[in-house]
Design a protein around this nucleic acid. Structure first.
Lengths: 339, 339
DNA sequence: TTGTAGGCGTTATCAG
DNA sequence: CTGATAACGCCTACAA
């Protein structure tokens, strides 16, 4: 492995000058610059990044914490984050927490040990008081997740209002016994959704009964299980709001298999507007998040915080979402005809 | 930021001794060990990873090159890779090439600049002669992709045979004009699939006509477009093999919308056995790859190569796949009744 | 069992 | 414009 020293020797110049050329600094004769470039090429020299990191105290790397990449929403998110980061010259380390508190904290160590310049948290299962200390080691930005605190910049949509809209839509479609299936994590975001959902119900003299609230529902399989539960224990259910399109798809799949009609017998709303929600038969009503914009802003903010070490004022960026109405809630027909 | 020096001072000992404690090395009195641990805690000391990297010449990081995370197959792959790598104490950097040769080469620089200890290529669009030089900088393993060369370890299924099986299945179902939709990249793997596909046809006195071969078909949208093309220009088509479940789903979606019956009017085969293929109506016949096993072996091999710097003999690991037959090719009924 | 000292490859400072 | 020289923080012979 050729080092800067080797290049210097070969070019008959000093390390300093070589370094200047590498970093495009001024004050180097064109002539010597050429000589150095030749030497570098001849030796196949590439600067050693570990040494650079040590010297410059920067890693040009960002950690992205998220539950799992296989959830298409996070897949989309990391695709955009990586791309945007790459544009800024940053690399991205994937950190799957699988909703485990200890994994989340383990990965935050990357910040402490200076393996990354900043962290994006799209997974947030710990209490804020356990996260906060890490702010001393470098910038953290919340993406999609959010909370009450003012200590950190957050980029997200208004999940409470989104859930409210979805619930309202189900009510307007004639649903009267609406179930609520949420992801497992007791995060702020899922609490917000539940509040919005319940608000809409309350305004129409309804409420979410314990039996219609199902937790820890994360993927297609869980959706199928959820339907089986409802079918057996809550056959009167006529609508359901879910935390993700995968869950919604699982429900639609299982329900159809059992001869229930969607939406006549059961109206279903998903979340995230994944391709899947469009492809299902019937297509699933869902909430669209502007993933790319969110990702873009997240990187922009984080990179900015990394560069301007002065703790900039934290901000909150709330992006608009859209309720996309599809067949799975299109109840023009009479609800609940003989099943 | 506290350094090892600070800890040493506070504990009244030398850097060496502190280093020994950090790295769990023997020859330290229990008493001093305790003292040092206390000092570390008091200072909130964590070893600086850049310095460690420089000193040890290891980064404990692996780069994974793949086309895009949003393709669910690669999503699954990276989920498993990251998890497995994490078990071995390695981090994973995501590198999306978007099938661009230059991006692939850019990311390979990570190996040269010692930012990673090894590279997993699940994307391979460059010629091997352009990749090979990078082997001097560190180990590379091909995952899912493969070629003729013997210079590198490869982990994959037999794509040629898989495509053969799929084609044969379509033929057995009575298809006589079978289209072939492949991903865009002119990779070895897609060439293999095409060979297998054509072999099956030839053995039954058929062949792939230019008009039935569609390239650059990558996602659901492309699948829809493909169907539109076939409908207009090749209405006699009665079966299609696709390179991915997303494409297959797009075709099924578009075809159903246009009133074509699947599989009676058009039998469809996907690839990868993503959840999507099961959820579609009708469910899509597909090829299942043992992603987790592939990922697991890939990490194992790469880590092994990283540790045993001696160039171990390269190997080829071929895993079994499975043709999963579903409704989209279940042509027991007469083919091509009035459309 | 503990400490000393040198160097991993770069870059920043300062003097020429 | 160019070049010594000193860090960055850690590990590891080697010596004690």
């Amino acid at each position: 492995m050729a080092t800067i020293e080797d290049v210097a020797k070969l070019a008959g110049l000093s390390r300093t000058t070589v370094s200047r050329v590498i970093n495009n600094q001024p004050y180097v004769t064109e002539e010597k610059k050429i000589k150095i470039n030749e030497a570098m090429k001849e030796l196949g020299y590439v600067p050693n990044s570990s040494a650079r990191r040590l010297r410059s105290q920067r890693t040009e790397t960002i950690a992205v914490l998220l539950p799992r990449v296989t959830n298409p929403f996070f897949g989309q998110l990391i695709e955009s984050l990586e791309q945007k980061a790459s544009d800024y010259g940053y690399q991205v380390i994937v950190c799957q927490t699988h909703d485990k508190k200890y994994k989340e904290l383990d990965y935050l160590q990357l910040l402490k040990t200076k393996q990354v310049d900043g962290v994006i948290m799209a997974s947030l299962t710990n209490e804020w008081m356990d996260i906060e200390p890490f702010l001393d080691s470098g910038p953290i930005v919340l993406c999609n997740e959010y909370m009450e605190t003012q200590d950190v910049t957050m980029i997200h949509i208004d999940h409470k209002q989104a859930a409210y809209d979805a619930a309202l839509h189900l009510i307007e479609q004639g649903c009267r016994r609406i179930a609520y299936a949420s992801g497992g994590r007791e995060t702020y975001i899922s609490k917000q959704r539940k509040i919005g959902f319940c608000d809409a119900l309350r305004e129409h003299n309804m409420w979410l009964s314990k039996e219609l609230e199902i937790n820890e529902v994360l993927d297609v399989g869980d959706g199928q299980t959820t339907f089986q539960y409802l079918k057996v224990h809550q056959p009167e259910v006529d609508g359901i709001f879910t935390g993700s399109d995968e869950v919604a798809a699982g429900i639609v799949y299982a329900a159809s298999k059992e001869g229930w009609r969607i939406p006549e017998d059961l109206a279903v709303v998903g979340f995230d507007n994944q391709m899947l929600s469009l492809l299902m038969v019937p297509a699933i009503t869902t909430i669209e998040q502007p993933v790319e914009q969110i990702a873009s802003k997240t990187i922009q903010v984080l990179v900015d915080q990394i560069k301007n070490k002065l703790s900039a004022p934290t901000q909150r960026f709330v992006y608009p979402y859209e309720l996309i109405k599809r067949k799975s809630t299109d109840c023009n027909t009479v609800k609940k005809t003989a099943r």
